[in-house]
């Protein structure tokens, strides 16, 4: 399995969690390394993805300067979770607002560690 297939499989695992709509691996400059979406995604979700893409650089800078591992935002009826993978990539999970954030963050932490091993 190539490293990109491995990453893709890990991201796909996340969208099988209840209420998770999309998962993406961003480079801190905003470029998408890999992404995975639920089959039925809405325009609203795409707008939130665009927001993530536009802001990931700012968020990652903030995370790095304050030594944060995880940041959560609530916007457009979605919950956005950023999780640091390594110094240049960030795992992002988009879920609807009913998501159980504790359970999602446990799995996101595990996935970010596995993805870091691929990179």
């Amino acid at each position: 399995m190539s490293y990109i297939q491995g990453i893709s499989s890990e991201l796909e695992d996340l969208i099988f969690l209840e209420d998770v709509e999309a998962s993406m691996l961003f480079r801190i400059d905003g470029n998408v390394v890999e992404s995975c979406f639920n089959k039925k995604y809405s325009q609203e979700l795409l707008r939130t993805v665009q927001w993530c893409k536009a802001n990931v650089e700012k968020v990652s800078l903030e995370m790095r300067s304050n030594n944060l591992n995880k940041v959560t935002y609530e916007l457009n009826e979605f919950c956005v979770l950023f999780f640091v993978v390594n110094s240049i990539t960030i795992l992002t999970a988009l879920a609807n607002q009913n998501v159980n954030l504790s359970l999602l963050s446990i799995e996101a932490k595990r996935k970010s560690q596995i993805i870091a091993n691929y990179l």
Partner: peptide, 14 residues
């Protein structure tokens, strides 16, 4: 169980 873990691994919920 909603979460499971062992000594050598991070816990998982899936």
């Amino acid at each position: 169980f909603p979460g499971v873990a062992t000594s050598n691994e991070l816990p998982t919920t899936q």
